[in-house]
């Protein structure tokens, strides 16, 4: 009995040490990572606000197809040589089934008057984001106001049964934003 207790105690103490070791992030890595992020912002002219908006819009877009952990979404710029890449990492909680996807798409289709044009435009902007180099990210900025106005229009055009859902979405994104702000502070 006493042996077992001793072993457990030893293990716990060992675990404690392991935890503190792994949690300790060294100043060098912190500096390197912070610098990477800030340089990407400098190089692309994307302000933190614009980056946040980009995240929000990506969440909205992708939520139609998969259920994901919105808070754990990571959006980073990476550089390999001269080529800049936009890395998006989203933990997927659950793949939506066909009916749910169709419903989400149908909701969107109803709200859009000329659906096909809208969708093809969306596709274009997606491609830009994925193969982002400096030029493209500038394009993105230019497109941004457009997209946003579309989005606002969508909200206005939505019939009453869609409004509830949209509101809840907006609430989510607001919450998300607040958390982000807290993190920044």
């Amino acid at each position: 009995m006493s042996d077992n207790i001793l072993k457990e105690l030893c293990n716990r103490i060992l675990n404690l040490f392991k935890q503190t070791e792994s949690e300790e992030v060294n100043a060098k890595d912190v500096a390197r990572n912070r610098l990477r992020v800030v340089l990407m912002q400098d190089r692309t002219n994307l302000t933190p606000e614009l980056l946040q908006r980009m995240r929000r819009e990506l969440v909205e877009l992708l939520s139609k197809y998969v259920e994901m952990d919105k808070d754990a979404l990571e959006l980073n710029f990476d550089q390999e040589g001269d080529q800049m890449a936009l890395m998006l990492s989203i933990p997927v909680i659950r793949a939506k089934d066909e009916a749910e996807i169709e419903e989400a798409l149908a909701n969107e289709d109803n709200s859009d008057t000329d659906e096909e044009d809208e969708i093809s435009e969306d596709d274009d902007s997606d491609n830009d984001e994925e193969s982002s180099n400096e030029e493209n990210s500038e394009n993105y900025q230019e497109e941004n106001p457009e997209n946003n106005s579309e989005y606002n229009e969508n909200n206005e055009n939505n019939s009453s049964d869609n409004n509830d859902e949209n509101n809840s979405q907006n609430e989510n994104s607001q919450e998300y934003q607040q958390e982000e702000n807290n993190n920044q502070q």
Binding site: N26, R32, Q79, G81
Partner: peptide
């Protein structure tokens, strides 16, 4: 400081600025 991971190394800076 570089050895104790408290300062960025030459390699880090070169990589970041390419």
């Amino acid at each position: 400081l570089v050895k104790s991971n408290d300062m960025m190394s030459v390699e880090d800076v070169v990589e970041i600025l390419s």
